[in-house]
Design a protein around this nucleic acid. Structure first.
Length: 567
RNA sequence: UGCCCGAUAGUGUAAUUGGCAACACGUCUGUCUCUGGAUCAGAAGAGUUUAGGUUCGACCCCUAAUCGGGCAACCA
């Protein structure tokens, strides 16, 4: 390592984060034969969220960077919470993000036999014992962080007795929860996790892979390090809350292996995002309580939700890269995520005309029954994207927001007597308008100047605004789903006395059904993304049909006018 | 009252490992524009939680304090 910085994406310089520093030092020292082998170890008890994406990008990214490998391993040691549906969704999400795990996916449950044999070794070595006490008693005896615990009366059974009991636990002779296998470490450690921790518990539940074969299941602390070891993992990355578990991770390995190869646990700070919740438990609550429409609801911070919303995998990877990796607690502004998608979408999406809240515009001096074709650039950011033709006629739809009867001075759009350009077409001037009984504007009457057609080079006096529009007769109907942040509070889970549900944003979804979009949008498929000119980025939803296309708003365009009216 | 982590502009992350704090987002100006988008140019904004110490020199090392987070599931 000659320099502490490196090229990222060819241009940006980025310095090494602390995990990379550790890895590079390990490589220099030839530790574990200078291999880099990471793993992403989700428990299949829920869908992955953007926080997991950070971890995925970290683990797979490190493997890529150092020519190593990264495993996908399902940490399925608790059959009561785990399901195959989650396994499938997790694999799909990891692949979608653009990563490929080494070989086949691994499962902690594949190691149950090895883990069992190791447990037997611990018992033989006098380092584990079977405790017959109920959970509450064990819990009481553990003491408190400030007071040491006391030893279990079953702590000093003979190895033979322990072995016999443990085998019978495995055989299913005992009741659920009636006995556990505990490590024999001591009851006085200031670290609660080191006070004779439970290694195995009896669980009469059907496991999603091993079915009813097992009656006992290993605990995370016992299973994780050994699973890492069996897979040849070198750097086992996890979040900060596992810091206090590390001594136990190391203790187990110390007792069980004698090779020089050793996996090392390193902790980093999990991602927190403003205006959302980021725990599987809380997300599950949103799903089960029908506050959202499933795990892939576009408002969810799940990878499936973001995907359906229209976020690109590239944007999420860039985001993960931008937020960095460190050990201090952090809350990332959702604005950064939004910026990152806009940045990506700006480069890749075709621009189209779509009017979300249409109002009829009649061009009074445009010949009756005449139409013409207007050529429009598909994407000014992409020279390869070409152009397309769009119909223009006497009757158009424009956005209701783009007209005001009595506009303020800084309003660059249409009002009585004002002039604007219709994007790609002509400059029009508002001559009059109709209102209904309630005062709503129903039709806007304009005149156009035939000399001002776009691309003719006739440099007309500049107009302040340019509006998007669709031709009234050829436009097709569409449904648009306007998504906004799910919570109105910056940190919905940060109130000890209040449930995040209380901060749900009542306007997080607005369904608009009478939108008018250009005819091209009849032929789209789920997942297609567009920029609705002047409005935002949109993505074709799964619910879309030929007769009624449905678009999700991914994110709006940066809107300075909206900011202006805030003032 | 215990133990373990952490603390740098509004938010994140840096600082060539001790040489007078940088980048991104955000904010504000302005430019350009047939998207009030994008682009481009520029500005404001921290003197690194505090107090000591070591040193020619400290964001960086030491000590203490303060603040924040984590730890007492047969969850992961």
């Amino acid at each position: 390592m000659s320099n502490n910085t490196e090229d990222v994406a060819g241009t940006e310089k980025r310095s090494l984060h602390f995990i990379e520093s550790i890895i590079e030092e390990d490589i220099r020292n030839g530790k574990n034969d200078a291999r880099v082998h990471t793993r992403f170890p989700p428990e299949p008890n829920g869908y992955l969220h953007i926080g997991h994406a950070k971890s995925i990008c970290l683990n797979f990214g490190l493997a890529e960077k150092y020519n190593g490998k990264c495993n996908l391993r399902f940490d399925d040691t608790n059959p009561e919470k785990e399901e195959t549906e989650y396994v499938d969704s997790i694999m799909e999400d990891v692949k979608w993000l653009g990563f490929q795990w080494d070989k086949e996916p691994y499962y902690a449950s594949d190691y149950f036999d090895r883990l069992y044999d190791w447990a037997v070794k611990l018992i033989r070595d006098g380092k584990a014992y079977v405790d017959d006490q109920p959970q509450e008693v064990i819990s009481q005896q553990r003491g408190t962080p400030t007071r040491p615990g006391i030893e279990s009366p079953f702590r000093n059974r003979t190895a033979e007795e322990n072995l016999d009991l443990f085998e019978r636990m495995k055989a299913g002779e005992f009741e659920n929860g009636s006995r556990v296998l505990r490590a024999k470490i001591g009851m006085t450690s200031p670290n609660m996790h080191m006070r004779d921790p439970v290694l195995y518990r009896i669980l009469n539940a059907e496991h999603h892979r091993t079915g009813n074969k097992w009656k006992i299941y290993p605990m995370y602390d016992y299973a994780h390090g050994q699973s890492d070891y069996l897979e040849g993992i070198t750097h086992s990355l996890c979040t900060l809350e596992f810091e206090v578990h590390r001594p136990l991770y190391d203790w187990c390995l110390d007792q069980l292996i004698e090779t020089s190869y050793r996996p090392r646990q390193i902790e980093f700070a999990r991602l927190n995002l403003s205006y959302t919740v980021m725990s599987k438990r809380k997300l599950l609550e949103l799903v089960k309580g029908n506050y959202v429409n499933g795990w892939d609801d576009p408002r969810m911070p799940t990878i499936a939700g973001l995907r359906r919303r229209g976020y690109t995998a590239a944007a999420i990877r860039t985001f993960a890269d931008r937020i960095g990796v460190a050990k201090r607690d952090n809350v990332i502004d959702v604005g950064l995520l939004e910026f990152t998608v806009r940045e990506d979408l700006n480069k890749i999406t075709p621009r189209v005309m779509a009017v979300i809240d249409p109002i009829l515009m009649v061009i009074t001096n445009y010949p009756e029954n005449q139409t013409e074709e207007i050529e429009l650039v598909n994407n000014p950011e992409d020279a390869e994207s070409g152009t397309r033709m769009l119909l223009f006629s006497k009757e158009l739809f424009i956005e209701r927001d783009d007209f005001m009867i009595d506009p303020p001075k800084k309003y660059f759009r249409l009002g009585p007597g004002r002039e604007v350009r219709l994007k790609g077409a002509y400059v029009v001037k508002c001559e009059s308008y109709d209102q209904d009984a309630d005062g709503n504007v129903t039709t806007i009457y304009c005149t156009y100047d035939a000399e001002t057609k776009s691309g003719t080079g006739s440099n007309q006096a500049k107009v302040k605004g340019t509006l998007h529009w669709v031709e009234a007769n050829s436009a097709i109907d569409a449904e648009v789903r306007l998504y906004d942040r799910l919570f109105v509070d910056e940190d919905p889970a940060g109130h000890a006395d209040k449930d995040p549900i209380e901060f749900l944003n009542p306007d997080s979804l607005k369904v608009v059904t009478n939108c008018k979009v250009e005819p091209l949008l009849a032929n789209t498929k789920s997942g297609d993304k567009f920029q609705f000119q002047r409005i935002g980025y949109f993505c074709v939803d799964n619910d879309s049909t030929f007769s009624m296309p449905v678009f999700n708003r991914i994110v709006s365009l940066k809107d300075n006018w909206a900011k202006e009216i805030q003032k």
